[in-house]
């Protein structure tokens, strides 16, 4: 099978978030950037597992400048076959989805994977936008994916209070959630071979983004915690009713 995994670059989960002078951009000094965890742990590893069982290839696709190549090399070290980088700054979900889908239109992939969302803008929009442009089924928040025949998959999708089990034929777009696979750490052989795997640079399409960032702000500082004596829990119940007014 020909599999594609869309990967994104995000600040590390534990990064301290601050913004530049006019609050339009993230202050990147001191921040470690990583492959978006949903893309890496679930989407990429699942694609590799399918390729190991069914043969074929796993390509990774990224929108970003050459300084992001280290993230793409990591995906290759984990086990992807080859990579494509669309050579432009990622500015919005609509722009990233448009660039990716425009590339995918010229390649016949059986399954197109994304993570369920990125951990920076938490939008979960790229998969749906790509599926619409490609006119393909889109299954979001998939926690299990089983290939049952060359062109047929059974997917479990998370939803409020439970799961749905879905049968779908390839090609389709799928967003990966926790449960789909287990994180893999690249080994030394993977890291060495990644250096010689093809990383193709793709020229972006012309596009004007449909949104722009006006400003960022940090949430208002929280008041200091009010401690309640464990011997006087009635006081907590009273505060929840009379002060917080939540019960």
């Amino acid at each position: 099978m020909k599999l594609l995994v869309c990967i994104s670059k995000t600040p590390d989960t534990t990064a301290k978030i601050a913004f530049n002078g006019d609050n339009t951009k993230l202050e990147t000094a001191g921040i470690t950037f990583i492959m978006n965890p949903y893309d890496e742990w679930y989407a990429l590893v699942k694609a590799i597992e399918i390729q190991e069982k069914w043969g074929g290839s796993v390509s990774v696709l990224h929108v970003g400048p050459s300084e992001n190549d280290s993230i793409i090399r990591k995906a290759l070290a984990i086990g992807a076959t080859d990579a494509y980088r669309i050579d432009t700054e990622a500015v919005s979900a609509d722009q990233v989805a448009f660039q990716m889908a425009s590339f995918i239109q010229h390649h016949a992939f059986d399954i197109i994977f994304t993570g369920k969302e990125t951990i920076d803008y938490n939008g979960a929009e790229v998969g749906g936008r790509m599926a619409a442009q490609l006119n393909l089924p889109f299954i979001s928040f998939a926690s299990h994916l089983d290939i049952v025949a060359e062109n047929e998959a059974i997917v479990k999708r998370d939803m409020e209070g439970g799961t749905e089990t879905i049968q779908v034929n390839t090609p389709f777009v799928i967003s990966a959630a926790k449960g789909m696979a287990e994180q893999r750490i690249p080994n030394m052989k993977g890291i060495m071979t990644a250096k010689s795997k093809p990383l193709n640079v793709v020229t972006p399409q012309e596009y004007s983004p449909k949104i722009s960032i006006v400003s960022h702000e940090l949430p208002p500082a929280k008041k200091a915690v009010q401690y309640i004596d464990p011997e006087n829990i009635a006081e907590l119940a009273r505060l929840l009713r009379e002060e917080a007014k939540v019960i």
């Binding site: 449909k210 949104i211 006006v214 702000e217």
Partner: peptide
Amino acid sequence: VYSSKALVNIELN
């Protein structure tokens, strides 16, 4: 955004 560590105002064009 950033897993609720910040807020953003987004203009729709």
